[in-house]
């Protein structure tokens, strides 16, 4: 089966996000006063084949832990859809 994994990577809450702070500030100067916080992250689409949803899930978690994220500062979530 072919799957499409949508992976969202962000910095952990405990890690300062200077890019997010800069964007927050910029939105405020553009008068979007109600914005209280912005966190900037990465979005990836990985297309893969696997025998089952469970297997695809395991593979994606493996990729994220091995390469796609740095667990010291980043966390991730993902969605799996059958392609």
């Amino acid at each position: 089966m072919d799957f499409l994994a949508k992976i969202y990577i962000t910095l952990k809450e405990s890690v300062l996000d200077p890019q997010g702070t800069a964007v927050t500030h910029a939105l405020h100067t553009l008068h979007y006063r109600t914005v209280s916080d912005v966190r900037v992250g990465k979005y990836m689409e990985v297309t893969l084949s696997a025998a089952s949803t469970e297997e695809a899930s395991t593979l994606i978690r493996g990729m994220c832990d091995d390469l796609l994220t740095n667990p010291v500062i980043e966390k991730y979530t993902y969605e799996l859809v059958e392609a």
Binding site: L11, V15, L16, P18, Q19, A22, N70, V72, I73
Partner: peptide, 17 residues
């Protein structure tokens, strides 16, 4: 070296961006 776990911690983008 930090990515490979030989040293602790991580290096983030400069705060000045």
């Amino acid at each position: 070296l930090t990515e490979s776990g030989l040293l602790e911690g991580a290096l983030r983008r400069n705060d000045s961006l």
